[in-house]
C-alpha cells in the first residue's frame, strides 16, 4: 500500500505522519509538495498532515485549500481514494468542502496540547474497523482552532448517517462535557464524508503510533486503512 503525505508551507507533522505509515505501519510512503499538480498512480491514501499551513493566515486551512495539489486531492477523494486530514489537515478538508462544518477557535481561547481520550463512534469505517470496539484511545491534540461547529441539521445528518468517527470522552469512555477539550459540538473529534473514504480528525494519531513514545493507540487507524485495502 502507498501513502502520500502532502507538505504545505507550514506543515509540521508531515514527518510524523511519514514515520507512522512507513516505519510503524511498514508501508510505502511519499511526500507530495503542495504545488505538485498530480497524485502519482498507485497512491492509495493521501494524508493531509497537521501544522500551520500558510501560517494559519485568514483562517486555518483557508489558503491551503487553493494549493494546486488540493484540486487533485478533491478528484482523488471523489474517485473513492482514501484521504485522512489530521488537525490542520481536518481544517483544510472543511475549508475545501470535502467535509462539512468548520473548526472555530477553542472555547477557552487557548492553544491546547495534551492527551485526550477518544471513543470510536463508527466502528465499521475504513479508518476504524481495525480498532477494538470498546477500546478507549489515548491520542494527543495540539490546536488552537479545533472547536468543531456545524448547524444542527448537519449534525443530525452526521449522526443519522453514522459519520461521526470519534468523540472526546473521559478515561472510562463517558462522553461528558468535562472531557470536551475545545467546545466541539457534541464532543465531536472526527468525522467522515458521505462515502466514508475521507476522515478528518483534530487529534494526532501519528503522534501516538510508535510504542517507543509510550502509546501507540493511533496506529490502529492506519492499520484499519491498510486492512481495508487488502
Amino acid at each position: 500500500m502507498k501513502f502520500a503525505v502532502v507538505v504545505f508551507p507550514g506543515s509540521n507533522c508531515d514527518h510524523d505522519a511519514y514515520h507512522a505509515v512507513s516505519k510503524n505501519l511498514g508501508e510505502k510512503a511519499h511526500f507530495l509538495w503542495h504545488k505538485d499538480t498530480s497524485i502519482p498512480d498507485g497512491i492509495d491514501c493521501v494524508i493531509l498532515p497537521g501544522g500551520f499551513s500558510y501560517g494559519d493566515y485568514l483562517r486555518c486551512g483557508a489558503i491551503a485549500r487553493f494549493s494546486p495539489l488540493m484540486k487533485e486531492v478533491v478528484n482523488f477523494a471523489s474517485k473513492g481514494g482514501y484521504v485522512i486530514g489530521i488537525c490542520n489537515g481536518f481544517q483544510i478538508l472543511t475549508e475545501s468542502g470535502l467535509l462539512p462544518g468548520a473548526l472555530l477557535r477553542n472555547q477557552n481561547l487557548s492553544f491546547i496540547c495534551k492527551d485526550t481520550f477518544l471513543k470510536t463512534i463508527n466502528t465499521k469505517s475504513v479508518f476504524t474497523s481495525n480498532l477494538e470496539i470498546e477500546k478507549i484511545l489515548r491520542i494527543p491534540i495540539a490546536h488552537g482552532e479545533g472547536n468543531f461547529f456545524a448547524e444542527d441539521d448537519v449534525i443530525k445528518k452526521l449522526e443519522d448517517d453514522d459519520r461521526i468517527a470519534f468523540k472526546y470522552c473521559n478515561e472510562v469512555g463517558e462522553i461528558v462535557e468535562s472531557s470536551n477539550p475545545n467546545g466541539s459540538v457534541k464532543n465531536i473529534a472526527g468525522i467522515l464524508n458521505a462515502n466514508g473514504n475521507v476522515l478528518g480528525m483534530m487529534p494526532h494519531p501519528e503522534r501516538y503510533s510508535d510504542s517507543i513514545l509510550g502509546c501507540n493507540d493511533g496506529l490502529g487507524i492506519f492499520e484499519s486503512i491498510l486492512n481495508n485495502l487488502k
Binding site: 485568514l58 483562517r59 483557508a62 475549508e95 468548520a102 472555530l104 461547529f149 448547524e151
Partner: peptide, 8 residues
Amino acid sequence: KLIANPII
C-alpha cells in the same frame, strides 16, 4: 470563495 467562511 476565500475572505469569509459562510458556514461560520
